[in-house]
C-alpha cells in the first residue's frame, strides 16, 4: 500500500491522463456523472455517488456497432488509448463484473468467442479500474445485502482510501500493482495511516443499516410468479425507465439501423423491460401487456433469473433507483414484500 499526499494527488491524476483516457465523476448542475476529463481539477469532490451509473463508459446508451455505405461495412473502433476510471464506488465496480459475466465471458461455451461481445471486451478488458472507498455511505446504500462493503475493493485494480491528509492506494490486481510501480512522488503507507483506514472502514460498515437476508428469494419469486403480489407492488409503478437507465447493472438493449439511402449505421441502444415496446411483437400481441408484468420481469431478473444463470444477484445495492423513482417504489421494500408475502 502506498501513500500520496493530498496536494500531490492531482499529479497522480495527470499521470493517469497521459497514459489513459480518463473518466471521473464530474459535477453537472445538480447531478454528478462520469465524464471523460481534461484536467484534474474538474473532478467532483463532494459527492456520495454519481447520479448516473458508470455503465455508460463501457456500455454507452447508444453505441455504433458498425457503419455501412453501399455494402461496405466499417466496424466502429474504440479509441487508441485504453480507459481508466477514477472514483468508482464498490457497488459500481461490482456491477461491472456482473456485466462482464454477460458481455465479457463466454459462459455457454468458453472456447467460443462468438458469445463474447467485442465492443464490451475491448473497453473493459483494457481498463484500469480505480475504486474510491466510501467513507460516508448514504442511507439508501445496501451493498451489504449482497456481500459488499463500503471499503471492499477486491474487484478493482486499485483501491483508493482517503484519510483526510492523504490518499492510500492499495493495488488489488496485477494490473494495478504494475501501474502503481510506475507512479512517482509516493511513500509507503505508515502504520498509523493503515490504522486510520481501518477505523474509517469500521465506521462506514457500521453506518449501513442491517442486512436483509435474501436467502431463498429465487424460489420464492418463482413461486409467486402468478400471484397477486406483483399487482400490489406494481400498482403505483408508472413504467418509466428511470430505474433501469440509472441502474449500474440493467443491460438490456435494442439494435437499430439509422441511415439514409445506402449509408447508415447500426446502433445498440439501451432498452428496458419497463417499456411496452420492449416485448411488443409484430402481430401486435404483447406477452407483457400490463404494467405489473413488466415490473415483475425487472425484479425477477434482478433477484431470480440472474442468480439462476450466473450465481449472483443482478443488484449491487447502490440505491440509485430508490432515489430517482418518481413514485418512490423502493426496491428494498419490494424484496421485503416478496419475502414476507402470504398469498
Amino acid at each position: 500500500m502506498i501513500r500520496i499526499k493530498k496536494e500531490n494527488i492531482s499529479g497522480f491524476i495527470e499521470g493517469l491522463m497521459s497514459d489513459y483516457v480518463l473518466f471521473a465523476p464530474v459535477k453537472d448542475g445538480e447531478t454528478v456523472s462520469f465524464r471523460k476529463i481534461e484536467s484534474a481539477d474538474s473532478i467532483a469532490e463532494d459527492y456520495m455517488n454519481t447520479d448516473k451509473s458508470p455503465k455508460d463508459i463501457f456500455f454507452p446508451p447508444a453505441e455504433v456497432l458498425f457503419s455501412f455505405d453501399s455494402g461496405e461495412i466499417t466496424k466502429n473502433e474504440c479509441s487508441e488509448k485504453p480507459f481508466a476510471v477514477w472514483g468508482l464506488r464498490g457497488c459500481d465496480v461490482k456491477s461491472l463484473t456482473l456485466l462482464n459475466m454477460v458481455f465479457g465471458t463466454a459462459r455457454q461455451n468458453p472456447e467460443d468467442e462468438m458469445f463474447q461481445d467485442p465492443y464490451w471486451k475491448e473497453k473493459y478488458d483494457n481498463a484500469l479500474i480505480i475504486q474510491t472507498a466510501c467513507n460516508d455511505p448514504r442511507s439508501t446504500c445496501f451493498c451489504n445485502w449482497f456481500g459488499g462493503s463500503p471499503h471492499d475493493g477486491e474487484k478493482a485494480d486499485i483501491l483508493v482510501i482517503y484519510i483526510g491528509d492523504a490518499y492510500l492506494l492499495d493495488p488489488k490486481s496485477d494490473k494495478g500493482r504494475k501501474y502503481l510501480e510506475t507512479v512517482k512522488n509516493t511513500e509507503p503507507a505508515a502504520k498509523k495511516d493503515i490504522k486510520e483506514a481501518e477505523r474509517l472502514r469500521a465506521e462506514a460498515d457500521s453506518s449501513l443499516s442491517a442486512v436483509f437476508e435474501l436467502d431463498g428469494i429465487v424460489g420464492r419469486m418463482s413461486g409467486l410468479f402468478n400471484s397477486g403480489v406483483w399487482e400490489e407492488i406494481g400498482a403505483k409503478c408508472v413504467n418509466c425507465g428511470a430505474c433501469a437507465f440509472i441502474c449500474p447493472t440493467c443491460h438490456c438493449f435494442d439494435v437499430q439501423d439509422e441511415g439514409k439511402g445506402k449509408k447508415g449505421k447500426r446502433i445498440r441502444i439501451w432498452d428496458t423491460c419497463m417499456f411496452p415496446v420492449f416485448t411488443a411483437e409484430a402481430s401486435g400481441h404483447n406477452p407483457r401487456e400490463l404494467s405489473k408484468d413488466r415490473l415483475r420481469q425487472r425484479f425477477m431478473h434482478k433477484y431470480s433469473y440472474f442468480m439462476e444463470n450466473y450465481g449472483e444477484h443482478l443488484c449491487t445495492g447502490c440505491g440509485r433507483c430508490v432515489v430517482v423513482c418518481p413514485v418512490n417504489l423502493d426496491i428494498r421494500e419490494v424484496a421485503k414484500k416478496v419475502m414476507s408475502y402470504q398469498s
Binding site: 453537472d28 448542475g29 447531478t31 448516473k52 446508451p61 408508472v238 413504467n239 418509466c240 425507465g241 428511470a242 433501469a244 437507465f245 440509472i246 439501451w270 417499456f275 411496452p276 415496446v277 430517482v324 418518481p326 413514485v327
Partner: peptide, 26 residues
Amino acid sequence: SKCIRCYACRNVCPSCYCNVCFVDQN
C-alpha cells in the same frame, strides 16, 4: 443533452396517454 430518454416525464404525465406514443412507433 442531459436527457437519457427514460420517459419518466411522459409516464408521470396524466395528459400523456396515447396507447402508442409517437416515439414508440416503429
